[in-house]
Simulated scan of single mutants.
Amino acid sequence: MKILFIGGSRINARLRVRALEKLGHSVDFYEHDTITPFSEVFLLRLFRFRLAGIVDRLSAFCLKRKLRFQGPYDVVFLNQSRLLGPRSYRILREHTEKIVNYINDDPFGNCSVSYWRLLLDALPSCDLVAVSRGENVREAKELGAQHVLRVFFPADEKLHSPMELSEGDVEKWSSDVLFIGTCFPERGPFMSRLIELGVPLTIYGNGWEKSPEWHNLRHVVKGGAIYGKDYVKVIQCAKVAIGLLSKGNRDTSTRRSMEIPAIGTVLCAERTDEHLSLYKEGKEALFFDNADECANRCLSVLKDPIVLKEIGCAGRRRFLKNGTTNLEMMKKILAAV
């Protein structure tokens, strides 16, 4: 198939494009920032002033010019395109019979709903909406989506796998208990409690210096957000990696729920029905309900290198069995459209 993919500039969108190409499809990739002369960040600021309609008209005008000599496409695949509304979809419809929108955030329950206005308004124009949360299926249908598919967050079958590490990599990235993620209000107290209970913690991520608990955390925060191969290396060099959920996004699992086991490191994540359906507790992953239980799980497994290795290997085998990869997700979405 010939596919037009419109998505963000970060690596995850490119990994999905690569999965489509691996499946044998021809893909044209437009980043959100290349649709208009203005950046996505700038245009989203206009939403605060109720100018979303103007953004949609601008996007539609630019798409019409950009696609003049392109297509037709078998499928237009949108990866959470917030700058495109009903007008833009009408332009896309001139070049395809099938429009898919994959939504990995939670615009239905998000407090910043104004930023999602165009995406939500355009749901009835999609032939398929793929969402990452169970409750989003009903919510999307209530907003007029014709066909909604639930998919799990994916890891990438190629990038998120054990790598050959140099001595320098091991020296640079090794840690006992790792957390990678942005600082949210509930995460500062959680991490402080882990430190108080003696967990040998290492943190990478943005915004931690703004946390009220920064005085307790500053010695364990080693850097900001990490992407690509360095992201894989830092997880692979950790004995245990913690998986926290985003309360604002109503998560019951996240990308890290798949990426950490895929890389072969022990996942220690919040206990949810979804996590328990993905991995056998105590055998393929560790789960907790609060910071004290998280600390207990981490400290216990660190004492036994054999059990640590067994859980890491079993978690990777289960990940492969689950098939929660970009390749399988894209295959499932295209089969449903």
Rank of each mutant, 00 (worst) to 15 (best):
I6K: 06
I6H: 07
I6W: 03
I6Y: 04
G7T: 02
G7L: 09
S9P: 01
I11N: 06
N12R: 12
N12G: 00
N12Y: 14
R14W: 11
L15T: 00
R16S: 02
R18W: 02
L20E: 05
L20S: 04
E21Q: 14
K22N: 10
L23W: 07
G24L: 10
Y30A: 12
Y30C: 10
D33I: 05
T34K: 13
T34Q: 13
S39K: 04
S39L: 04
S39T: 15
E40L: 09
E40C: 04
V41F: 14
V41M: 08
L43C: 03
L46G: 09
F47M: 06
R48Y: 15
F49E: 07
R50N: 13
L51A: 14
L51C: 09
L51H: 02
A52I: 00
G53F: 07
I54M: 13
D56R: 02
L58D: 06
L58T: 01
S59M: 04
S59Y: 01
A60R: 08
A60Q: 06
F61V: 05
L63W: 02
L63Y: 05
K64R: 14
R65F: 10
L67N: 10
R68Q: 14
R68L: 14
F69D: 15
F69C: 09
Q70P: 00
P72S: 13
P72M: 13
P72H: 12
D74R: 08
V75C: 07
V76C: 13
V76E: 00
F77S: 05
F77T: 06
F77H: 11
L78G: 03
Q80G: 13
Q80T: 08
S81A: 15
R82Y: 08
R82V: 12
